[in-house]
Write a protein that binds this DNA or RNA. Structure first.
Length: 195
DNA sequence: GGACGTTTCTATG
DNA sequence: CATAGAAACGTCC
């Protein structure tokens, strides 16, 4: 059907974003921002481990920008995307609403996961939803637990606000990167979470 | 099969 | 009311 042969672009580029809360790592594919990792340093004030790094990146992704791109167009897009990502992340960490998000590459997810992630994007800053509400929103009212799984698999936390999903009683629920982060992000948005 | 970032529904005191 | 199973869902190990 396509006359143009689409050359697969497995290229991934990782770029860092320094913030007051640590260094985040953004990974871009040819389609846009593909993942955002929390700082690997421990966060929090209490002893013990709190907050761990996100899923490890593919080896190819760790080479960084210099190893890339033979593709100039990609390189140009990258600068723009990364500027937008940086701004959006910093806004989010400050509890403000990001005016603009970079293009998001959610293609790594299954149908259900992508549905969940898109639903998450519609939750405004300072608002929350329950796992069951999300389940209803994607048309799978009974797949509540699967929604929890999809939230946990969210490759772009903070910008895709999985932290705004709480249990139906207002409890925190879980957070892959550590509940400390979830609490922090919610607090920055002015959300009081019941104990 | 088992374990999850849950929720509801059905018993029981 | 409080508490205790159990079932439902999708994905990963």
């Amino acid at each position: 059907v396509n006359e143009i042969v689409m050359k697969p672009n497995p290229t991934l580029v990782t770029l860092r974003i320094g913030t007051r809360d640590g260094v985040f790592v953004a990974t871009y594919s040819g389609k846009g921002l593909a993942s955002l990792e929390f700082p690997s340093e421990r966060v929090g004030t209490r002893r013990g481990r709190v907050g761990r790094a996100g899923t490890p990146l593919p080896a190819a992704a760790r080479r960084g920008l210099r190893a890339l791109p033979s593709n100039l167009k990609f390189g140009a897009s990258l600068r723009r995307w990364h500027a937008v990502t940086t701004k959006a992340l910093k806004a989010a960490l400050a509890g403000r609403v990001a005016k603009l998000l970079p293009p998001l590459d959610l293609s790594s997810g299954t149908a259900l996961q992508q549905g969940v992630w898109k639903a998450l994007l519609k939750i405004g800053a300072g608002k929350t939803r329950s796992y069951s509400e999300i389940a209803r929103l994607i048309g799978r009212p009974k797949a509540v637990r699967a929604v929890g799984g999809a939230c946990g698999a969210n490759p772009i936390p903070v910008l895709v606000p999985c932290h705004r999903v709480l249990t139906v009683n207002g409890g925190l629920g879980g957070f892959s990167a550590g509940l400390k982060w979830k609490r922090l992000l919610l607090a920055r948005e002015g959300v009081e979470v019941g104990g």
